[in-house]
Amino acid sequence: MEFLHAFFIAPFVEMVDQPWFLFEVLVGGLSAGVMYSLVALGFVLIFKASGVFNYAQGVMVLFAALNLVGLMEWGVPVWLALILTVIIMIGLAFAVERLVLRKLVNQEPIILFMATIGLAFFLEGFGETIWGSDVRPLDIGIPDDVWFVGDAMLQQSDIFAAVVASFLVTVLALFFHYTRIGRALRAVADDHQAALSIGIPLNHIWIIVWAVAGFVALVAGVMWGARLGVQFSLAIIALKALPVLILGGFTSIPGAIIGGLIIGAGEKVAEVYWGSLFGGAIEEWFAYVVALVFLFFRPQGLFGDKIIERV
């Protein structure tokens, strides 16, 4: 009885009692969600264009952030370091296409998935061999004051991240809709064979999506790095992007964004209001269980393409 009360009644009473606190929790969760979305976005781009489930996306976030911080420690100015990192990520895209994807054309999805796990190991080792594995702060001038809205305290950096993320998504959407390359990318996502037959070079497309995903990873890396410092755990946080993906659907960009927001807000609220009931730290698995329950009802995610199976 006491448990039922604590489960069904007390949290809601608390929410109504202190609406500003709920607001604060929600905003905190949503901004974490934006971060998840940024990582998930990279996954979706690559999955759409090449059908590869890119496990290395999380490590790419770490790798980009490591490069940025490393270059800045050498005394390179911020803008130049950003440009150099983008160039490195494009180089990485080339290398991945040449050395990995091209050799594994026509293999089963699980083999490609394993190859990206191998890539994740490689990149992690490579980045840390060059730049070391200490935790390093990343300061590129993101504002970190707080604002007060009513009684709630909002981190400026959170708002900044949200603005950057929405800007990025808008740019990507425009890129996909109005440029020649964007159209080619959508064609490939739609049907590989048909795209090939009308003369779209698949290899170039792969390089481009990996480069774009690298760029998205850099943005995510900057945001996470500014928040938590650049360290290995960035790659682990990126695992949280997976439930975001299944919630939103593997093939949908808006799905990645909305899924991220739902997961981010949901897990924060659950942790704050229900966490102590189960002994805390339910954040670790809450997102996955939500995604699991959700998939029972919609196996293709919120916005994913309908799965049609034929014999």
Binding site: L99, V100, K103, L104, Q107, E108, I111, M114, A115, I117, G118, L119, A120, F121, F122, L123, E124, G125, F126, E128, T129, G132, S133
Partner: peptide, 24 residues
């Protein structure tokens, strides 16, 4: 030892990819 560990990661990852390419 830290460097060895990182290089180990690198080689391990590269070997995985190599194996998948040579004999999936």
């Amino acid at each position: 030892t830290a460097l060895i560990r990182h290089v180990e990661f690198m080689i391990f990852g590269a070997m995985i990819i190599f194996f998948l390419i040579v004999e999936p």
